[in-house]
Amino acid sequence: MIGLLDLKSAGWRRIGMLLVAMLVVFAPTELAAQTPGASEALTRALDDVSGDGAPLTLSLQILILMGLLTILPSLVLMMTSFTRIIIVLSILRQALGLQQTPPNQVLIGLSLFLSIFVMAPSIEQINANAIEPYGNDEIALEQAIEVSGDVFHAFMVKQTRQNDLKLFMDLGDEPPVATPQDIPFSVLLPAFVTSELKTAFQIGFMIFLPFLIIDLVVASTLMALGMMMLSPTIISMPFKLLLFVLVDGWALTMGSLAGSFVT
């Protein structure tokens, strides 16, 4: 996956080989069953890192793998739909006035599985054009990295605003590009994350607005009745929950989030 960063030095290229090999090895069981050669991918990648064809020592291999395992989740989450989904669901929980319901584990699980649903076309494309051919020794590892990078690149370009791209192109003093495919990953990644944050807060504002109106109505009513010592949150929370259930809020929210991604 580091190969997606568009860094062309030999050291970064070898680390990219390691990351893609890890994706092959730790792919879901359903994909692994379709790639009989996946179990040897990590060994071949580790042999490539040495540069002279000699494998690294076992202790150094374990050290590299543990380091990559800490980086890989961040890269995967930042390059997929996870960021937008988890932020919107967190704002929804705050709008309902619920502090720990649903708990963080539930929100993360919902975000993860909805991200898998949104990214399913890209995952299937990577599996068909990169993982399976590489596991069957039909293409080289570098070609598999390139194909996987193109798929993620195309997904992120569709979700990124032009203003954010221009901002980071100017900050990085990058020359103008002829086509979106020529945008380097060093520019596309921060632009994509920035665009996702902006989109998530826009969606969150639209979700927050009706619940804010309920809070204002309840607070004004209590003030008019002289019940200033009673917390408006206690009274408004049942009304917000009732409204959310009556409009089938979870289905609307999840469906709207999934539909907000350009395909």
Rank of each mutant, 00 (worst) to 15 (best):
S59W: 04
F244V: 01
S90C: 02
L114N: 02
E30H: 09
S115E: 06
Q159T: 04
P232V: 12
S260R: 03
V76G: 02
S148Y: 09
L252C: 07
L31P: 00
G109M: 12
L69G: 01
V218A: 05
S256E: 03
S74I: 15
L7M: 11
M17A: 03
L75R: 09
L110P: 01
A154P: 00
I183K: 01
F113L: 15
S111Y: 10
I2N: 01
D164E: 12
P133I: 08
L246D: 11
M206A: 13
N104K: 01
L92H: 02
L77C: 02
F244A: 01
S195P: 12
I64V: 15
L96V: 08
L89R: 05
I235F: 01
V217A: 14
S74F: 14
A41M: 11
E138Q: 10
A251W: 06
S195H: 05
M79A: 04
S122I: 11
T80S: 14
F26T: 06
T263M: 06
P238G: 08
Q125I: 07
F82A: 00
I15A: 04
S9R: 04
L114F: 06
T43A: 03
M237W: 04
L98Q: 04
G16I: 10
K198D: 00
P121V: 01
V151I: 15
A33I: 06
I91M: 15
L107K: 02
S81Q: 13
D248C: 08
L46M: 14
L42S: 13
D170Q: 14
A21E: 12
R93A: 00
L257A: 05
L189E: 02
I213V: 14
T233K: 03
V193S: 01
E142A: 08
A45N: 03
L141Y: 05
L65F: 08
A41Y: 10
I145W: 11
V245I: 14
D215P: 11
S186M: 09
L167F: 10
M78W: 10
L110C: 11
D137P: 07
A258Q: 10
L243E: 09
L241T: 07
R161E: 12
V245N: 08
L225A: 13
M227G: 07
T263H: 10
M156Y: 04
S59K: 00
D170I: 14
V76R: 06
A10M: 12
M17T: 07
E196H: 13
P73E: 06
V187K: 01
Q34W: 06
F201Q: 14
L89T: 07
I139A: 00
L23G: 06
L58P: 12
S186P: 11
